[in-house]
Amino acid sequence: MELHIVHESPDGEHLVVGVFMKVGMTNAALFQAFQNLPWTVNDEHAPRGALINVSNLLPRKTSYFQYRGSLTTPPCTEGVEWYVMRHPVELADAQIAAFQRLPYINPNNRPLQPINGRVIYLRDP
């Protein structure tokens, strides 16, 4: 799985942080969110006091790939700055299964796109 943290500036510029996820321990940062997954398209669950600290979704090792691309959902807006974390975070089997059971969301991946001459940088702070 991959998590996308999407930011939009007031002037409409987009930046996305991608985080790969692998099978492992329960992801505490996403525990409450996965306990309240919406089962229909317009269903919203907003448990009182539920907050996700986005920094807890990132891996400890901060190496990342950087490139210019597009959004992965329509209208697939171009000119998006991507930062894809090199190292994955863990997500429990049960959390992955809960996501996979959502009837309206799977499959939800965009087909692999060609590189089209873009440069991909590896940043290793």
Rank of each mutant, 00 (worst) to 15 (best):
H7W: 09
E8K: 14
D11I: 06
D11W: 00
D11K: 00
G12W: 00
H14W: 01
L15Y: 04
L15S: 04
L15T: 15
V17N: 01
M21F: 02
K22P: 00
G24E: 05
M25I: 02
M25E: 11
N27R: 13
N27T: 00
A28M: 07
F31E: 09
F31N: 08
Q32R: 13
F34Q: 05
F34D: 04
Q35F: 14
L37T: 04
L37P: 03
W39T: 11
N42M: 12
A46Y: 09
G49C: 14
G49M: 13
A50D: 09
N53D: 15
V54N: 07
L57N: 01
L57Q: 00
L57W: 00
R60N: 06
K61I: 04
T62W: 06
T62P: 03
S63R: 14
F65S: 12
F65M: 15
S70K: 00
S70A: 02
L71W: 04
P74Y: 04
P74C: 06
C76W: 12
V80D: 11
E81S: 14
W82N: 10
V84M: 10
V84A: 11
H87K: 03
P88E: 05
E90C: 11
L91G: 05
D93V: 03
R101I: 13
P107Y: 08
P107T: 15
N109Y: 09
N109V: 02
L112Y: 09
L112P: 06
L112T: 10
I115K: 01
I120F: 03
Y121W: 07
Y121C: 11
R123G: 01
D124A: 14
P125G: 08
